[in-house]
Design a protein around this nucleic acid. Structure first.
Length: 564
RNA sequence: CGGGACGUAGCACAGCUUGGUAGUGCACUACCUUGGGGUGGUAGGGGUCGCGCGUUCAAAUCGCGUCGUUCCGACCA
């Protein structure tokens, strides 16, 4: 592409309403433009990048034998009502009505439609396995879009769905996709981790996430410094350490703690170690109120709570409800004489003589003990793991945290959807069986953002050459010098004929402007046509190494090939 | 959904307290200048001050409402 007379622009000044490096650089380099909160235009340059990312994924999908198709974005609402997911998505689904008042939604994910498509083919076990995928726009009405392309309301997703007769088949299909994902992200040059995760509204048997490691990630990755354990914080299990000996029970005493409802204040004011305190939170789990106890320095993990109760919704009780259920101000809830079910984290089971809220404003009890002073109906793993803890897998290493952007996710769905929607096949014994599904997603836009997060400097983006909008930029220093113009054009024709993606900066701009623009948009190899031409030389700059080499014109093409 | 902030030219912002001709920088146009890391200059073009209602002789400025954006939290594949 020749820049003069092309649609190309960059912004010199910073944009204010981007809260991430990648969002900022992508906007400033003219790759994307915000249209509305969490809704972006892909401008020509950005669209080129997106297409290159898509093509990598497409090639890896096709290599597994998966077949590409395209689903509609607008879907009758009843499709999601029938699968039971309409309520689960709730307000995060965009909905609209047609002229006859029939309700439609904009698809947030497409299990239902793929299942419908698969039903056209599946009659017997001989019809499987197969795998279908698409690149298509998804719509999710996020409460809070942020970080440029990372959390948006309309985005392209590559979603794939596998159909098998049984779990063994699913395992094979899943592994194929899993490997294709690894290859795709490797080819994009992304630094990523694979973690086990919550299955969320997708449900099913297993979820694994591909997380690009960046400082602005929205997910916390739990990693072991000794073994290969890796998990999303939301599902990371905690090891329970059992003390070697137990203290004798002391007599429970009431402690006047006026206006001291917070753990930190209790520590400061009464010098009680955090290890000898519990905290009690009241949760509304579906329609039931439950008192949840953890040691005071632990945090309750709501995903674990939701799983334990197999609940649809888990939320902290409203202040009014807490006051009504405890007859006390916020901050004084406890298990003693509680009127609701009490459950506790494993760690609490091994505590003795600890502090609890008194269910009475401005009072706590010290030296409380379960079994004697009150009953706890169940102990389970409810807390969030912390950095430095012992790894739950190898039980040797220590836990470290890292931040990640979820760029891909694979689910073993099993028969959750096929049972609910009745997609069956006849097996070899002429018995009706539910089809076994997997679903697999990649966000190309998030990949683009993650690559920029991981590859940029003060001057701009540093694209890997297979992702860059252009592999090579040819910069004419002074367009009034015929020698520079003709030499650059000749090289442009030659590289183009070799199938390279070449940019010719033939604008009537100052050299500094062109250099800065090429750095900003991140062209990996930049060739300068300037005064060196008198000696038959041009200057080649490798963006990521930030060095410059003088190269004879006759060696230029070879030099570029070796640099990519 | 709760709390805070902001909305003035394509972008970033000042002006608002104390109401009275709408400004600055970048970008843009023309000419001159310069020509290897965002040249320097001269002259220009571009804004219903988010929208509505109100107060007032007079509203970007004060009040109410509304829409949008954004930050923190809640929620979230």
């Amino acid at each position: 592409m020749k820049l003069k007379n092309s649609f190309f622009y960059t912004l010199r000044e910073n944009v204010k309403d981007e809260d991430s490096d990648s969002g900022n650089l992508l906007v400033r380099s003219g790759m994307i433009k915000k249209s509305s909160s969490g809704i972006y235009m892909y401008m020509p340059l950005g669209y080129k990048v997106l297409k290159k990312i898509e093509q990598i994924i497409r090639e890896e999908m096709n290599a597994t034998g998966a077949q590409e198709l395209l689903m509609p974005s607008m879907i009758p609402e009843e499709v999601y009502i029938n699968s039971g997911r309409r309520a689960g998505f709730g307000n995060s689904m965009f909905s609209l009505k047609d002229r006859f008042n029939k309700p439609f939604v904009l698809g947030p994910t497409h299990e239902e439609l793929f299942l419908d498509a698969a039903a056209s083919k599946i009659r017997s076990y001989k019809d499987m396995p197969f795998n279908l995928y698409q690149f298509q726009n998804k719509f999710r009405d996020e409460p809070r879009p942020r970080f440029g392309l990372i959390r948006v309301r309309e985005f392209i997703m590559k979603d794939a769905y596998s159909f098998d007769t049984d779990l063994d088949g699913l395992q094979i299909s899943y592994d194929k996709m899993f490997n294709a994902y690894k290859k795709s992200f490797d080819r994009m040059g992304i630094d990523y981790k694979i973690v086990t995760a919550d299955t969320g509204v997708m449900g099913g048997l297993l979820s694994e996430e591909f997380q690009a490691v960046t400082a602005i990630g929205e997910d916390t990755l739990v990693l072991c410094d000794h073994c290969d354990y890796s998990s999303n914080l939301e599902v990371a299990q905690c090891l329970t350490e059992v003390p070697s000996s137990f203290e004798d029970l002391k007599v429970m005493e009431k402690l006047h703690t006026p206006n001291v409802g917070k753990i930190k204040d209790l520590v400061d004011t009464y010098q009680i170690p955090v290890e000898n305190m519990t905290k009690s939170m009241i949760y509304k789990i579906d329609d039931e109120f439950v008192l949840v106890m953890v040691r005071s320095d632990d945090e309750i993990n709501e995903v674990k709570l939701q799983k334990y109760f197999k609940a649809q919704s888990v939320e902290l009780a409203e202040n009014d409800d807490v006051v009504r259920l405890t007859n006390a101000k916020i901050g004084f809830a406890g298990p003693y004489q509680a009127k609701i079910k009490v459950i506790a984290d494993h760690k609490v089971e091994h505590m003795r003589n600890y502090l609890i809220g008194a269910n009475e404003s401005d009072y706590h009890y010290v030296n409380a003990n379960h079994g004697r002073d009150f009953e706890i109906s169940a102990y389970t793993d409810l807390r969030e793991i912390k950095e430095g803890e012992i790894c739950p897998k190898c039980q040797k290493g220590h836990i470290q945290f890292s931040k990640g952007i979820e760029i891909g996710n694979t689910f073993k769905l099993g028969d959750k959807y096929t049972k609910a929607l009745g997609l069956n096949y006849l097996d070899a014994n002429n018995q009706l069986q539910p089809v076994v599904m997997g679903s697999y997603g990649i966000g190309p836009g998030r990949c683009m953002a993650a690559i920029v997060e991981q590859n940029h400097d003060d001057y701009g983006i540093i694209w890997p050459s297979n992702i860059a909008p252009f592999e090579v930029a040819l910069v004419i220093i002074n367009t009034k010098v015929e020698e520079q113009v003709s030499a650059a054009n000749k090289v442009y024709e030659e590289l183009s004929s070799l199938g390279m993606d070449v940019l010719l900066d033939d604008r009537d701009e100052r050299a500094g402007v062109k250099f800065n623009d090429m750095d900003l948009i991140g062209v990996p190899v930049q060739v300068t046509f300037g005064r060196g031409l008198a000696d038959g030389e041009v200057e080649v700059k490798i963006r990521k190494e930030n060095n410059k080499t003088n190269v004879k014109l006759e060696n230029l093409v070879q030099f570029i090939k070796e640099s990519l």
